[in-house]
């Protein structure tokens, strides 16, 4: 029981991070219908900026350092997100379906190697910053640990997602995004600046990914130029699992992927945890082809 609870905690923490990245995938997919393969790299850049930031501001008090790094990472990563959309995707907006995908794969390969060249191929560590934990449950000699960091990650993720949902549902930019998602031509006829809205989507996705990157840097303490690939793939799986194009779906999918991974590693074999993720994805898609919360696709001739 205690062991189960511990895995639940770990899984939810991991799931929160995946959920944040998955939102970026799902929003971009919803609005322009492309898989943004470079999104995992965006997250990696966010994490790298966090390492740089924490090294630079190691003299500052903890809370202000974290807030400063979060803000800086989100801003700089957003610039990266905007630039990628502007240079690699916008020129291909109206060409055939696979062109932007290949461009995205190229961008992803480029960014990975760009960071490797500039920041080095070695693992970049930071010292642990937030220590301590609640020990709230004891079962024989197994103590359930809920670290402060885990609480921070989960709570801040919930807060961020709430704010984000409010932005999508209540503000003008959110309305424009939803309008573009339904029909770009109609939206532009009604005065929505479609280019601007798409740029904003990329900026928002990048900011959420940067937030996830900072949290992961704090959580694991190491960053590497290759982390974007696997995290990106898991997050994309999460987005598909929840129903791509659906924002609550992405959050749910992220949570599920995190839980599956944690429980599989705990109760079965850790080597096959990625296999488990994909097997469950395949099973879900076979029985619910549009994901858990996705709208079924109606195709007309």
């Amino acid at each position: 029981m205690a062991y189960f609870l511990q895995q639940l905690i770990n899984g939810v923490t991991l799931g929160a991070v995946y959920g944040l990245i998955a939102i970026g995938y799902t929003m971009v997919y919803g609005i322009i219908g492309m898989i943004n393969f470079a999104h995992g790299e965006i997250y990696m850049i966010g994490a790298f900026i966090a390492v740089i930031g924490f090294t630079l501001f190691s003299g500052l008090p903890l809370v202000s350092a974290i807030l400063l790094v979060l803000a800086l990472s989100m801003i700089f990563t957003a610039i990266y997100g905007w630039t990628i959309e502007r240079t690699a995707y916008r020129p291909l907006r109206n060409s055939f379906r696979l062109a932007p995908l290949i461009s995205a794969i190229g961008m992803s390969i480029f960014l990975q190697n760009y960071v490797q060249l500039l920041q080095g191929a070695r693992v970049r560590p930071i010292p642990p910053m937030i220590k301590g934990s609640f020990k709230f449950f004891q079962d024989s000699d197994f103590v359930v640990n809920l670290t402060y960091l885990q609480v921070i990650i989960v709570v801040s993720t919930i807060a961020l997602m709430t704010v984000f949902t409010l932005i999508i549902n209540k503000t003008a930019i959110g309305r424009q995004q939803r309008a573009c998602e339904q029909d770009k031509t109609m939206a532009s006829l009604l005065g929505v600046n479609v280019d601007h809205t798409i740029s904003m989507t990329f900026i928002m996705g990048a900011m959420l990914a940067a937030f996830a990157g900072v949290m992961v840097t704090l959580y694991y303490g190491v960053v590497h130029f290759f982390i974007g690939f696997l995290a990106g793939m898991k997050a994309f799986t999460a987005a598909v699992l929840g129903g791509i194009g659906s924002i609550p779906g992405a959050m749910l999918g992220g949570l599920l992927i995190g839980l599956i991974e944690a429980f599989w590693s705990a109760y079965f074999t850790i080597e096959y945890k990625d296999v488990a993720t994909f097997v469950i994805l395949v099973l879900v898609l076979i029985f619910r082809p549009s994901g858990l919360l996705g709208r079924p696709e109606i195709e007309k001739v």
Binding site: P91, F96, A99, S103, G106, M107, F110
Partner: peptide, 18 residues
């Protein structure tokens, strides 16, 4: 090499999307 490869992929796709 790989960085140039990725960048080249983007450029070629923009140049000849089809």
């Amino acid at each position: 090499r790989m960085a140039a490869f990725g960048f080249g992929l983007v450029l070629i796709m923009i140049w000849r999307p089809t």
